[in-house]
Amino acid sequence: MTISPRLIRHAKDLGLQIIVVAAVLAVWKLGTEWADSLYFPSPNKVFAEVWNGWILDWSNTWEDNLQPSLMRLLSGFFLASFFAITTGIAIGRSRTLGDYVEPIIHFVRSIPPPALLPLFLVLLGIDDTMKIVLIATGVFPPILLNTIDGVRSIDPLYLDTATAYRISRSRRLTHVILPSAGPKIFAGLRISLSIAVILMVISELIAATNGVGFRILQAQRQFKMVDLWAGLVVLGTMGAFLNGVLSLVERRVLRWRRA
């Protein structure tokens, strides 16, 4: 048995990744030591702060920063996903309905999501409801538009087959239309997740007393640059983690695509 070329390629890629990450860290370290800038602390200090300030103090970190942020983000994300997918299917199935509402959807989509914040601030105040509604509103259009697109581009033969076998309306929806729109829906969810993180951070930078964004803001106000960078690292890790979870779910749900 010889080692497959694919395995060699994967090993090479992994090696390259390690080298690149190491290079980035090295440039960061040497660069900051050389420049001795106020704003760019060395990675040693930053990761030490992540370890001491966030991980060793986990229970406080979780309660004051991570949990509030995740709660806002996930509530808004799931709320929007549910409504966007259901209405997206309805609009995707009916040309007529689509004709009536699509211009409105396209208009709402072209509002840059953070621009909604002042309005929601006036209407809903500064508590969590506002943040959740903001996140949900911001991530709604991409999921909706992708769902509509996915439902519209379903192969007509899939539907003919369902008709030929007298498949009931509800099963046609759950077993034919939804899975065939699945890849597009997940594309929308992925875009939405990054928008959700953006909106979570902004809302916490402007109107919050806890959360990861708030901790970053506090560090900035007290001019604690190491803390600020540690906050960025944590935020990045959180984003990567959420993305990873979504990818896992996608791979599981859409595993037939790799067949």
Partner: peptide, 14 residues
């Protein structure tokens, strides 16, 4: 019932 010509598109890939 019917059997269609295009089997690729009449079986459900999922």
């Amino acid at each position: 019932t019917l059997v269609f010509q295009d089997y690729r598109r009449s079986l459900y890939p999922w």
